[in-house]
Design a protein around this nucleic acid. Structure first.
Lengths: 340, 340
DNA sequence: CTGAAAGCGCTAACAC
DNA sequence: GTGTTAGCGCTTTCAG
């Protein structure tokens, strides 16, 4: 099985008694306006059918200089937000006749370089990246070769195309409310302090405190990385230091919250009255015993804008604006207030 | 920008003053044993470097008849289990120099056909599929063209290569314990009754009751489909019928449980003492107020076996066995018992 | 209306 | 040691 020689356009041309050129025209539906005899067309078509002719995509792609393929680079596909994003993006691609190539970096810049090179070697037509890099320089260089759209994270003052959820404002709003309830103690657990999500959410955190009239204490701010284990450890250390869980806590990403929740469940803290807040939502949060207020991103819109912008760039148009900040939604679970 | 003509092997051959053939040998590292002069080799290599030579993958793939690409078809990448599976599989592929193409079907056989055709048109070297089809006939036919490995679900008595978590046994064990605690009332919420996961888990459910000495009541078994909304509706209808939530419930998949939990949270049922059990685990279940006993699949092993089997088939070997059933783990959350 | 031929970029026989 | 050449399967002028 499957040793069968590929049936090529020459084969069906021969069988139909026409030339490759004619066959090609017919098979690409351009037979009509290009004056191929009705009868010839039908003959070619039915023969192609019978022989289960499938054009070689590689031959075709070799001619055009496109792969009809887009690359997506995310830290973790197992992260619910990125999964939803990927799902939406894949649908958009499919509808547009593009194939999406998804690669994960594990938040590891080294691996990110590897997978990006991979995708470039595969000649993707464009790239959408949630980068774990500290600098955009690799992508600036890469942008000379092919269109690159960054999303979810940005490097300082990058001028590359970018799609982000605006996180400062909603974080500030969220934190303000929490801080009003717990003016004496509210902690911030962040990821890598130099990555933009952490920075922006910290900025929002500070603004929120300010608006609530709460003076920031330096020890409230704790940094780790985006792995759940880091969230676990930061929270464990914090509990150890305080001799009890903190009264209120904001985690800058759902991975961190995952670690915190794991610690809490292992230590019987799930019924405690710690006030949790976080960036990123998850459908299961509705069912948790601890109530968690969150900032929810609109992954669908995120995907839509990334796609739209990238395809524009691939087609050599200039989408505007080149950097887009989308609004987020707050999910209040602590009281029966308006879930805006 | 990016209008720059591609630099080909002819270019660098010309620049190095050698023939394409020599350049090709050198660039593929076969220069050494094939007696290309050390000096020539270096010259070619440095020129290639300077020119940022990148071989055209399409040209290469046109020659070999391989795409170095595997296709993965899953119902939903946003489903945590499939996300973990995809993640593991992608790693295995990357390490093997393969590119993974992921497509989602939304549990929709029509869309499944579309995405599979897509992948076949892309000339994937092999296909891994969690199918929503009722019959394996499409895949039996497809297997004549390229290797196909089914996973997670199987069609009745299919002889195609298959990797599954053994679900009957662990489900029976799980249900037995639940049934001993609630011999008078234990419901089964399933997906499409004709899909194998539903059937197997129902079989396990029945065996569990039997072992517990509980007589099955037909009204305990309720079927819908795998969408969370279906879980929601089945559960809502059940509550309406009973005038209260059921005492014990087993859901056949995590999507269904998602719907049930949504209903429960919306109706203030999360603190009720309903005994929940389900197939498929999620890390957040540890943090729920309702305790849920689950059957946890080993996605990593699942991915490993699919990959190993498929690559064997691609290389025209005969992996054995051709159908593999992997063990599951029970996660008890109702009491401090051994979490096996 | 249809065919011949060139060429996309690469590799592998086979010469020299 | 290195060059010549053919051919992977397709599309697209350009001639009939």
């Amino acid at each position: 099985m499957r040793k069968t020689k590929r049936v090529t356009i020459s084969d069906i041309a021969a069988l139909a008694g026409v030339s490759k050129a004619t066959a090609s025209l017919v098979l690409n539906g351009r037979g009509k306006e290009l004056r191929v005899a009705q009868e010839t067309r039908e003959r070619v078509l039915t023969i192609a059918q019978q022989q289960h002719y499938q054009p070689s995509i590689h031959a075709r792609l070799l001619r055009e200089n496109r792969s009809h393929t887009l690359g997506l680079v995310v830290p973790e596909i197992t992260n619910y937000g990125f999964a939803v994003f990927s799902y939406e993006l894949e649908n958009l691609c499919r509808e547009a006749g593009l194939q999406l190539l998804i690669s994960c970096t594990d938040e590891n810049p080294g691996q990110e370089t590897v997978v990006v090179n991979n995708l470039v070697a595969r000649q993707v037509d464009g790239l959408i990246v949630a980068s774990s890099m500290l600098s955009d320089s690799d992508y600036v260089k890469l942008s000379e070769q092919l269109p690159v759209v960054l999303f979810d994270r940005h490097m300082s003052d990058t001028r590359l195309p970018l799609v982000m959820t605006d996180s400062v404002t909603p974080t500030a709003e969220l934190v303000e409310r929490v801080a009003r309830a717990h003016p004496d103690e509210i902690y911030f657990l962040g990821g890598q302090p130099r990555l933009s999500p952490t920075k922006d959410r910290l900025e929002g955190f500070k603004q929120g405190l300010e608006r609530a009239g709460v003076a920031l204490r330096p020890e409230w701010i704790i940094h780790g990385n985006y792995h759940p284990s880091s969230g676990y450890e930061m929270f464990a250390a914090l509990c150890a230091r305080l001799g009890r869980p903190p009264k209120a806590l904001f985690t800058a990403a759902c991975g961190l919250l995952e670690g915190v929740l794991r610690y809490m469940s292992q230590h019987g803290l799930l019924e405690s009255d710690i006030h949790l807040a976080s960036f990123d939502d998850h459908y299961l949060y509705d069912s948790l015993s601890v109530r968690i207020d969150t900032v929810q991103q609109d992954c669908r819109q995120l995907a839509y804008h990334c796609f739209e912008m990238l395809t524009q760039l691939v087609d050599e148009n200039d989408p505007t604006p080149l950097q887009r900040h989308l609004p987020a939604t707050l999910q209040w679970r602590h009281q029966a207030s308006v879930s805006s």
